[in-house]
């Protein structure tokens, strides 16, 4: 299969098949996401009416930590079973490997977020039926997936990979988290695309930037 798309889809097919077999990633992150909202719901019990105001922040705290959990697994299975080595000795470009892993992580995270969002909306009392909110979540998650995949590939080669990933990940995605929280606050408040001002384009610019830089760095990271 030639080109970039074919190998990307093969890698995604394989990762989905493995996840369907093990179900360890999606289930554990779903449970984590639900626990976060339950904890925050109890914590905010004394501040009725403020839940909706704080909802975007809570939402992105949960999504960001869920992303770290998902990313921790992205290359661990490859490393443990030699799959990465198998990919590296196949005639597939490093870009295809990277983008395949990004797409897999993006699909998993979006599925988890799609399951969590209605629960968050009910418990924190905000409307999830907002196209701008959905777009914000998509762009923010894309940024998480791109940056997280790169740092997951780096962290998996270290002994303290579970600690290393968040240490590397959060400082770099901070602009995305800030912009996503701001955009989500406005989206939850009923603003349209125009009302989101600079925040949504800012996430888009960061995504585009990371999509150019990260595959390039990935090629060096996986080179032994």
């Amino acid at each position: 299969m030639n080109g970039l798309l074919g190998p990307i889809l093969v890698i995604v097919w394989k990762d989905i098949l493995l996840e369907l077999r093990s179900r360890d990633l999606v289930v554990s992150i779903l449970v984590f996401g639900l626990l976060v909202v339950v904890v925050f719901n109890f914590a905010l019990n004394n501040a009725p009416g403020r839940a909706a105001e704080l909802a975007p922040g809570i939402l992105w705290v949960a999504f960001a930590f869920s992303a770290v959990l998902a990313m921790n697994r992205a290359f661990v299975r490859e490393q443990e079973q030699g799959g990465l080595e198998g990919l590296l000795i196949s005639p597939v470009s490093r870009d295809a490997i990277f983008l395949g892993k990004v797409l897999t992580s993006l699909i998993f995270m979006l599925l988890i977020e799609a399951a969590l969002l209605p629960v968050y909306a009910v418990m924190l009392d905000f409307s999830a039926l907002s196209l701008t909110l959905v777009l914000t979540i998509f762009l923010g998650t894309l940024g998480f997936a791109v940056v997280g995949t790169l740092f997951s590939a780096m962290a998996v080669q270290t002994r303290s990979r579970e600690i290393m990933l968040p240490v590397l990940f959060f400082p770099v995605v901070l602009p995305i988290i800030i912009a996503a929280v701001e955009a989500s606050t406005r989206a939850v408040g009923g603003e349209t695309f125009v009302g989101l001002g600079r925040w949504l384009p800012l996430i888009g610019i960061f995504d585009a930037l990371f999509l150019v830089i990260c595959p390039w760095i990935f090629a060096f990271v996986v080179e032994e």
Binding site: K14, L17, L18, R21, S22, R77, Q81, G82, G83, E85, G86, I89, P91
Partner: peptide, 16 residues
């Protein structure tokens, strides 16, 4: 494309 490699690890996914 022109090499086949067998190393110490099978490079196969155990759950497949």
């Amino acid at each position: 494309r022109r090499i086949g490699v067998v190393g110490h690890r099978s490079l196969l996914y155990e759950d497949m």
